Computed example of a mutant assay.
Amino acid sequence: MASLDSTAIEPARAARPGLNAAGTLAVGLILPVGLALAWEGLAALGVVSTRLLPPPSQILRTLGDLAMRGVLLDHVLTTLGRVAAGFLLGVAAGTALGAATGVWPLARRLLDPTIQALRSIPSIAWVPLFILWFGIFETPKVMLIAVGVFFPVYLTLAGAIASVDRKLVEVGRIYRFGTWDLVRRILLPAALPTYITGLRGGLGLGWMFVVAAEFMGASKGLGYLLVDGQMTGRPAIILAAILLFAVLGKLSDLALAALGARLVRWQDGFRPEGA
């Protein structure tokens, strides 16, 4: 009887993760779908001006028209390429300096005050300087995105390393770990969950900064669509670009979160009931 019960339970356990993922996705869609339906209904009743605030159906038609003309994919891929390049550059710099200031007190005293001061500079303030330095082509756009990604990655990694349990470090010293072994085998694994959170924060800021980046004389990209919609008085184009930013940002964050979950499978963290 016990063996029958255990075999009956195992399939349910195996199916639970997939069911939870599907259920989470379904619940997460309730609010945006409900708002879209309400928005469509108000527009149909004439409560909302469709000239200034086009309904979701018109936005979808605009996206379909851009796709049929063959320009939508080009704009999306251009923006994705800029975000990817800026993200990788910002992560590399943020990881290197965050690890350095987290591990070596001298590096922290030397570098951290300047980095904290630079963090307070508004993103748009870098635009004229980057144009002056790098021109108006791709380089200043990628650099501006990298600036947005850098700071959350740097801050979370430096803070995570500084907050690693001292007992773990003492164990490493007992085993005579050198600085590199201590970083590789104790500090970075212990800081990894927080570091992944910083990567997700940096990615989110990368998507925000790409809008400012594509205002710098871009001829392609979703930011260009925003400007084009404004200049030609087509709010459907603007809302379509905003919708694409939201969808692409969410999908990229989901991909990064899934990768992070695989890297920290060893972590026995808190999970609320029903999660």
Rank of each mutant, 00 (worst) to 15 (best):
T101P: 04
T194V: 12
R265D: 14
S49T: 01
I161G: 03
F137P: 09
I196S: 00
F134M: 09
L89W: 07
A12P: 10
D65Y: 12
D228G: 11
V27Q: 00
A257R: 13
A92H: 14
R69K: 11
P152R: 01
I30A: 07
E214A: 05
Q267I: 09
E170N: 10
Q58N: 15
L254N: 12
A36P: 03
V142R: 07
W266R: 13
F177R: 06
E138D: 13
L225F: 09
L72D: 02
W180S: 14
P56F: 01
L226H: 05
G201P: 03
L63T: 05
A8Y: 08
T139Y: 15
G159I: 03
F150R: 00
S163Q: 12
G86I: 07
G148F: 01
A158K: 02
I237G: 02
P193M: 01
R69V: 10
A255T: 07
T62F: 02
L168S: 13
L35R: 12
E138H: 08
A99C: 02
P113M: 06
V264A: 12
R184V: 14
G18L: 10
P17Y: 08
T24P: 00
V71G: 00
G172Q: 02
L4D: 06
P122W: 05
D165F: 06
L243S: 11
S252R: 13
V211W: 02
L80E: 03
L37M: 08
R271H: 13
E170F: 07
V127A: 10
M68S: 15
A191M: 00
L73M: 06
E273T: 15
I30F: 04
V103A: 04
G46C: 08
V103C: 04
V264M: 11
R234W: 03
L72I: 03
T156R: 14
G90N: 04
D65I: 13
A8C: 09
G135T: 11
I238Q: 04
D181H: 15
I174S: 06
L187W: 00
V127T: 08
A246I: 11
W39K: 05
L259N: 07
L251R: 14
T232R: 13
R61Q: 15
L25T: 05
A43P: 00
A241D: 06
I121V: 15
L66E: 03
L118F: 13
E10F: 15
D74S: 12
G86R: 02
D112G: 06
Y175I: 00
E273G: 14
A21S: 11
A93W: 07
P54S: 04
V264G: 11
Q267R: 11
L4H: 06
L80V: 07
S6C: 15
G204W: 01
A218C: 05
F245M: 04
A261R: 15
A162K: 03
E40L: 10
E40W: 08
F150N: 00
W133S: 14
P128E: 13
L244W: 06
L52I: 07
A22M: 10
L106R: 12
L259A: 09
P32K: 04
L52V: 06
G34W: 05
A257T: 12
T79F: 02
L251N: 14
L73R: 04
T139P: 14
P152E: 02
L239F: 06
Q116R: 09
V227S: 12
F134H: 05
I161T: 03
D181C: 15
